[in-house]
Design a protein around this nucleic acid. Sequence first.
DNA 1: TGGATATATGAACAACTATTCATATATCGA
DNA 2: TCGATATATGAATAGTTGTTCATATATCCA
Lengths: 118, 118
Amino acid sequence: MDKTSQCCGLAHMQEDELHAINEKMPPEEQLYDLSDFFKIFGDSTRVKILFVLSEAEVCVCDIATILDMTQSAISHQLRVLKANKLVKFRRDGKTIFYSLADSHIQTILKQGLEHIEE
Amino acid sequence: MDKTSQCCGLAHMQEDELHAINEKMPPEEQLYDLSDFFKIFGDSTRVKILFVLSEAEVCVCDIATILDMTQSAISHQLRVLKANKLVKFRRDGKTIFYSLADSHIQTILKQGLEHIEE
DNA sequence: TGGATATATGAACAACTATTCATATATCGA
DNA sequence: TCGATATATGAATAGTTGTTCATATATCCA
């Protein structure tokens, strides 16, 4: 005991302390899931889409119009949002309407906005 | 008036409705800041570092030891976290101790964890 | 002052990702 | 069924980013 970490000779932290921190960390897989989750919000196009959908249920082409982007670009990003269950959709004839999967999404966005406004 | 959006011939949404959504959207710059903010949490190494620092004030080499990564890789990521004011640091001799900038960070992480645990 | 150590950083590279372009699929109306 | 339209998708490309390697900077101690 009283073994220090290997990196620095100084006893900043004992080995059992380092171990204790490791114990308290969420499991590896959860950490990956978490960063993957935040990654989705890490693209401005997707964030814009989410804000549009927080206002109304909107079809793909209307999103493209509002954001002044191509239908293809929007569709690709909607696929990401869909795959990660952030949005849901409903078909009405040729049109597909998208909306937020749940209110949780808005909470996350709001929380983020609050942070950057400091 | 009664003009429909240009994309689809159907009147899914009138032009003034599209305009109204645009009005309610946060300003362009804020949307970029927001996605940039989430982007920081979108890397597992950075998320891991933040979790380590949520447990204790730790020096660079101890973080590297805990996460089993090179000192350089950790240092590069700490630079990102530092530049974005997510962590603060204090020098003690040769050693530099890092800690979370504020408790807000833990809230964000916790919120994210809660979401993916559903 | 010189050697050892903790951290930082620049360049290079590999991996990833967002958009574009072309095209496919699905639905509607005639 | 055929043409028109809304959406989806595959391939290609350009831009971004995380890690590594080599090295620089800063501090301590002898």
